[in-house]
Computed example of a mutant assay.
Amino acid sequence: MSERVVKIGLAGFGTVGSGVAKLILEDADAIAARTGLRLELACVVDIDTTSPRPVTLPAGVLTDDLNRLYDDDSIHIGVEMIGGTDVAKQVQLKMLAAGKDVVTANKALLAEHGNELIRAARVSGRCIAFEASCAGGMPIVSAIRTGLTANQINSMYGIVNGTCNYILSNMTAQNQDFAEALAEAQQKGYAEADPTLDISGGDSAHKLAILASIGFGYEIALDDIFVEGIEGISIDDIRYGGEMGYCLKLLAIGQRDEQGRISLRVHPSFIAKDCSLARVAGPFNAVSIFGSAVGQVMFYGRGAGMMPTASAVVADIVDVALGNSGTTF
């Protein structure tokens, strides 16, 4: 199979950015054999160019100068792994203006400014791919966008935050109180030092806003989503629910009614112990989608972490390079 070289500029060399670089450098031959695309890292940009990472870059690839990415016409795809909503937004806009397609895992930015960014991409004749933004390694965005394109999506619900699921799973299985379960999640790297965005339900709302925009075909704002987190959950809530045959999960829920109106909410929910979602434990995610033709389908997998998220980012890079990511929000 003849190969086509695809040069990539990576902005952000933290945990996930390191995973992306690792996959591109170490699996380039396997990816080329499967796709006919030879992925090459033209540059990796980060303000920290000295800290050790789990991957060694070729000499001269790492830089702290973003203009090197913007100004290199040989770079086809810009990968934004910076995070946040301010600098990252400007980086994506400049990538698009420079004629680069964009790949990102930035759920907060997409939830807050996704429609603006997509309009900028259309003006520039480029695309933004964001599989890794919603469920780590689970290919749920591409499933909704292409695999379920013959369906009207009527509802979706699921577990989209591994931190909360780990905490609630431990409260259920280990009889831990909330503070103890949170501390263990932080110790094992499943929760941030400041877990507010996760435990408040904000992270799940970001992901629901993106999935609902694609699935229901509406522009969704975060203010459209009712959000309640798990901070107020006690071990007594878990115990009493268990006695009645239920377990507690933080669910992201989107529904279309008979008049076509959409309701969106994130909140703790009691579900029957024999429900498939009840068996999703620890940091894993799972989402059920109900389509008009296919019925119910369910996606399950690791929703975060360096390599699962990097897997989705590299899949997006390949999709963009093959011309399969033109349709987004």
Rank of each mutant, 00 (worst) to 15 (best):
S2I: 14
R4Y: 12
V5D: 12
G9W: 00
F13N: 06
F13T: 08
V16L: 10
G17T: 08
V20Q: 08
L23K: 14
L23Q: 13
L25G: 10
E26L: 15
D29H: 15
A33N: 13
G36N: 11
R38Y: 15
V44Y: 03
T49D: 04
L57V: 12
A59N: 11
A59G: 10
N67M: 09
D73Y: 09
S74N: 11
S74D: 10
I77R: 01
E80Y: 01
I82V: 12
Q92V: 09
Q92S: 07
L96R: 00
G99F: 04
D101R: 01
A105P: 06
N106E: 06
K107T: 03
K107H: 08
L109Y: 05
E112Y: 10
E116M: 14
I118L: 14
A121M: 06
R122L: 09
R122A: 08
I128K: 01
A132R: 01
S133H: 02
C134G: 02
A135F: 10
G137N: 07
S142W: 12
A143P: 02
R145M: 13
R145G: 06
L148C: 05
T149E: 15
T149H: 15
A150H: 12
I153C: 00
I153R: 00
M156K: 03
M156I: 04
Y157L: 11
N161E: 15
C164F: 03
N165V: 08
Y166S: 12
T172S: 15
Q176H: 12
L182Y: 04
Q186E: 04
Y190K: 02
P195V: 04
D198T: 11
S204D: 01
A212K: 06
S213P: 06
G217T: 14
D223F: 11
D223S: 15
F226D: 11
D236C: 13
I238G: 04
G241F: 13
G242F: 10
M244W: 11
Y246K: 13
L251A: 05
L251H: 01
G254D: 01
G254Q: 03
R256D: 05
R261A: 11
P268E: 08
A272D: 13
S276M: 13
R279Q: 14
G282W: 05
S288D: 12
S292G: 10
A293L: 15
M298R: 10
Y300G: 05
R302V: 08
A304M: 05
A304T: 07
G305L: 02
P308L: 08
P308Q: 09
A310V: 02
S311K: 09
D316C: 06
D316K: 06
A321E: 02
S325A: 13
T327Y: 13
T328W: 04
